[in-house]
């Protein structure tokens, strides 16, 4: 088998492993890469971000995104399901409008609004991430369920399926690819957005970037950016591998 054929066959499953290995490699290499970063930022006194261990920052970053995304998925998918039930239909227009509106709202603005009410640190960051991550999930959840051919639902009811059976055997499987795409967008955007949490005192991979900007140290900025980028790619490729293929 040629390399291309191998990639074609196993690529989707292999990509997250490769990116994950890249991330681990990056974590191991960064603290030892003094020479490279000194060449990159010759004017700086310290070239490796010293205040925290990169692994600790990464884990903290992941924990923030994990908690926020988990909540966003629960709320977003839950809300999408509620407003598409016969008894929740009244709220469908409201939910659709909210989902559409949220896309025009920059994440920094959400953070700025969260601080006065919740103070500094991890909590307002999580709140902002949940609010911002909720919307693509809700929007795609609605699109996925509303996108099902009404004739299919009519037939399901006419054949004598219960509402629960319609939900589990019909609506969720048919909406899953679109829903998963929304979750993927939400998580990927969340990884990037969490970095902004560093501006309000949450410990994230944004710390080296903020410190770099403040001190004019481009080596710090690159270290944070590299880790965030590779982390986002790892998770994105993981979703790609998990998404069921449509026939």
């Amino acid at each position: 088998m040629s390399a291309v054929a191998i990639w074609h066959r196993y690529g989707r499953g292999l990509a997250p492993l490769l990116w994950g290995a890249g991330l681990v490699g990056l974590l191991a290499w960064l603290p030892r890469a003094e020479g490279f970063f000194r060449w990159l930022a010759p004017g700086a006194r310290v070239v490796i971000y010293p205040r925290d261990d990169f692994t600790a920052l990464l884990l903290n970053h992941l924990a923030l995104v994990g908690v926020a995304s988990g909540l966003a998925i629960l709320l977003g998918v839950g809300a999408a399901l509620v407003v598409t039930r016969p008894w929740g239909r009244d709220f469908l227009p409201l939910a659709s409008q909210l989902a559409a509106m949220g896309q025009t709202f920059p994440p920094v603005a959400v953070l700025a609004l969260a601080v006065p009410s919740l103070g500094f640190g991890a909590l307002p960051t999580v709140v902002a991430l949940v609010l911002y991550g909720l919307l693509p999930i809700l929007r795609n959840g609605l699109a996925g369920i509303e996108g099902i051919d009404p004739a299919v639902r009519e037939a399901a009811r006419g054949m004598g399926m219960s509402p629960g059976q319609v939900l589990w055997r019909l609506e969720l499987p048919l909406a899953a690819p679109v829903m998963l795409a929304g979750i993927r967008t939400s998580v990927t955007v969340g990884i990037a957005t969490a970095a902004i949490g560093s501006t309000i005192g949450a410990k994230t991979l944004g710390d080296p970037i903020i410190a770099g900007i403040v001190n004019g140290n481009s080596a710090y900025i690159l270290q944070g950016a590299l880790l965030i980028g590779v982390l986002a790619l790892t998770l994105d490729s993981l979703f790609e591998a998990l998404t069921p293929r449509r026939r």
Binding site: D149, A151, A155, A156, G158, M159
Partner: peptide
Amino acid sequence: QRLRRRIGYAIQSTGLFP
């Protein structure tokens, strides 16, 4: 639901599960 399970139902757009 019980009633519908003992009555066959066919519609124009078939409504087959894709």
